[in-house]
Computed example of a mutant assay.
Amino acid sequence: MPPLPTSHPARQSLRALLCGFAQIFLQQSPGCGLLVLIAILIGAPDLLPGALLGGLTSMLIAQHRGYPPADIAIGLYGYNGILLGLLLSLKLPWTPLLPVLIITSAALSSLLLAPWMRSMRKHGWLPAFTFPFVLLGWLLLALVTQLQLPLAAPTSSPSAPELNFLQLMLAVLRGLGQVIFLDSPLAGLCLLIGLRLADGRTALWALLGSSGGFALAIFSGWPGEGALAGLYGYNATLAAIALAQVHRSPLIPALGILLALLLQPGFNALGLPALTMPFILACWLIRAGTQSWQKAVKDSTPRV
């Protein structure tokens, strides 16, 4: 009996690439990934070529290096490259240097992620999340500043009108979009639909994360323009999604939202762009705290 036909390699690669877009929001649904891609097309179509180049590069490097096919298939070797492609396309104009930087950094992101994931599985390391993107992003932005490379034209931020329900909803949607550097509410709505397609609970926590970030920023008296642009919502969104996947209690994701927001201003004080590092640190702190608590409870339990 002849072997059953397998999926065409090109179709497998397309599915893995779409899952890479979804993994930015910690999902592995190609449908969600397609809507993330469409959101970029809606909000900033000039960023899409860089995102595709970064995602393809990081995925192809993983395939060439023989990393676990299952990890590649669900997009784990795509999302850091996509984020680097987005960041570089946002900061730099399209010149011959830009694709070189995207390809190099996206390839390095896969090379950094692979040993981290092995150590996570063998030795219980903390999850990498988007740390390769953050580390390489910091290095690249420092390089851009050091070499005084020409920058792309900055996008304008929304002004701070009197707050009302409509402005609140638009800011919450922008908070979702800012995960991938978009300030378009329509793009944020597209992302919300993608998350709902992947998992309804995840979509709800994404909304709560962005809303919580906005509310805490306004309550703390931080710049209204930044709050309306969603700049205080995206790390809270990611922290809420990540922690809600692991913890059933709503208190843990709520704590993650608070921590992500409180950590964000510290990077401005250090002169570093926050990127997604507040989200990563919030999740790491809660993971380390829960492990320490579980160990303390286990050690204090009397043995018969």
Results as ranks from 00 to 15, higher is better:
G224N: 15
C19Q: 08
A16H: 07
L216T: 12
K122G: 15
P158Q: 02
H123D: 15
A240C: 13
G271W: 08
H8W: 12
G213E: 13
M117A: 13
S300K: 02
T145R: 01
H123P: 02
L255I: 14
L197N: 04
L88N: 06
P250M: 14
A70R: 03
R303D: 12
L207E: 08
A242E: 07
F165R: 08
L47K: 04
L37W: 00
P45K: 07
V172P: 02
L272N: 10
L272K: 05
S159H: 07
G43A: 13
N268C: 05
M277L: 11
L251G: 03
S105N: 12
L231W: 03
P185D: 11
P158M: 05
T290H: 07
N235A: 08
P49N: 08
L262A: 11
T290G: 04
D71L: 10
L272T: 09
P150D: 09
L48M: 11
P185Q: 05
V304K: 01
W125T: 09
R287A: 15
A142M: 04
N235R: 10
I102V: 13
W138Q: 03
Q264I: 05
A198F: 00
P302D: 03
G221Q: 10
G54K: 01
L275P: 03
H247N: 14
G50Y: 02
L26D: 02
I74H: 01
L207W: 07
Q245Y: 06
